[in-house]
């Protein structure tokens, strides 16, 4: 089972696909999220979101802060601005 990742900015959906792992720049430290992670809401600090598929980093997306909602099967990231990786 894969983790559904969605990165959304006010203007568009930046990214939406199933991934293996995502590393988020949390306000209190980086955290990696795998499938079946405990539900939580995290505030992000400016940094990069790294997306891992098949053991390789496939996307690196710079964000200037935002919020991430994590449920067992889904990660939704709200960013205020995300340039193309």
């Amino acid at each position: 089972m894969a983790l559904e990742l969605e990165i959304v900015s006010p203007d568009r959906i930046v990214l939406s696909k199933p991934v293996e792992m995502v590393v988020l720049p949390g306000a209190e430290g980086e955290l990696g999220v795998l499938v079946d992670h405990a539900p939580m809401v995290v505030m992000l600090q400016p940094g990069t979101i790294r997306v891992t598929e098949d053991g390789k980093v496939t996307d690196e997306i710079a964000v200037d802060g935002g919020f991430a909602e994590i449920t067992g099967a889904r990660v939704t990231v709200l960013v205020s601005g995300a340039p193309a990786a």
Binding site: A27, A38, P39, M40, V41, G72
Partner: peptide, 10 residues
């Protein structure tokens, strides 16, 4: 339903 036990950071 699941939301009852959400953690928050900070």
């Amino acid at each position: 339903g699941v939301h009852a036990i959400v953690e928050f950071e900070p």
